[in-house]
Amino acid sequence: MYSVSKHNDFIQLLESLLPEDGLLQTDIAALSLSKVSITSEFACSMYEPSVYFIARGVKEVHLAEQIYTYDASTYMLSSVHLPLSGKITEASQEAPYLALKLTFSLDEIMEVVQESGDAFAQPCTKKCDCALVMGAMDEALLDALIRLVSLLKNPKMISALSPLIIKEVLYRLLDHHPQMFIKQFATMGSYAYRIMQAIRLINTHFAEPLRITEMAHQLGMSNSLFHRHFKKVTTLTPIQYQKKVRLQMARKLLLSQKVDAANASFQVGYASPSQFSREYTRMYGLPPKSDTKHQSDFSKQS
């Protein structure tokens, strides 16, 4: 746990940097801050390798059939790109939702693991295959976050100090017992590492046909082993994962570029607009055209 006064300091610091609602991409490239004064509907998006902290408010996130809820007492850690849907369930004008996202790369994790030597060699006592986990906030982690965010008020110190504090945060995450799985993802040759490579390939080439046998062979795995470990990490099969990525990319096209549904479906790899429409409706609850209008109307109301 952590002291109430330190938590209040964190809230005041974020409020001073976020005078209005919205997402702030800060001068620290890996760090973004957000403020929202109303609860939200479910929104699907691709969560990159990041750790997500909430200073105030509550968020609910869905990954396949799994439901995760976190608040200021916890954090959410995603070690690979995952297609998630989430909504803010607690926020108001008087007490806006305040959150922080810190992204990291495989290279950064590998550096921390290599430098730690045997410091984190003890085995994990809990199942830690899935790439999305929750952890409990503590005083030391909160203190590091406050020092990192405080650098935004001293820009000349960012280049020298932010990499050190980010590394400290990663060390502390690695030290949190349930999160030992990070080491698996940073260990060359491990099944988790190979699945991460597969995830990267699917995200890079999502519009292309997914050739399971070819990908499994490329990773040095049998089809059955590839399927089993892919689902352990993502809770989805490779085909289900690619479908979610395609539909999210299509939705992004529909909302941001104003393309029609047929055009969006072809751009993300669908050969049949009707199949695209069916699967889009199944995932988002509305056909593409209706969903686009609904999202536009909701944005105007917000």
Rank of each mutant, 00 (worst) to 15 (best):
E15I: 08
S299L: 15
D71C: 09
L286C: 03
T125E: 08
K167L: 05
K231V: 05
E94V: 10
G22Q: 12
S78Q: 08
Q257R: 12
E208K: 13
G86Q: 13
L173R: 03
E279A: 05
E111N: 13
D118V: 09
L174G: 12
S256C: 07
Q122F: 10
N223H: 12
H81I: 10
Q248E: 14
E65K: 12
K59G: 01
A198N: 09
S105I: 08
V36R: 12
Q240E: 15
K293L: 14
Y75W: 06
L84M: 11
D9Y: 03
S290F: 07
L174V: 14
N154F: 11
E208R: 09
S79T: 15
V149H: 01
P96T: 11
D260W: 06
H229D: 10
M180T: 10
S79Y: 04
M46R: 06
Q114C: 07
F226V: 07
M110G: 00
L63R: 02
K300V: 14
G86K: 09
M283K: 05
Q93Y: 06
P96D: 13
G285M: 04
K87Y: 03
H176N: 14
E168T: 15
H177E: 15
E115P: 00
D129N: 11
I109Q: 02
I146K: 05
L201W: 04
K289H: 08
S299R: 13
L255R: 01
H205I: 01
L173M: 08
L102A: 05
F120E: 12
I182L: 15
A131L: 07
M76R: 06
D260Q: 09
L253M: 12
S73Y: 01
A264V: 08
Q25S: 11
S92K: 03
P19H: 03
L77K: 04
T234H: 06
I212W: 00
Q122L: 11
A192I: 02
Q248W: 03
G86C: 08
N263P: 00
S105E: 11
V80S: 03
L132C: 10
D297P: 00
A95E: 15
L145H: 09
S150W: 02
D107F: 05
A30W: 01
L18N: 12
S190V: 04
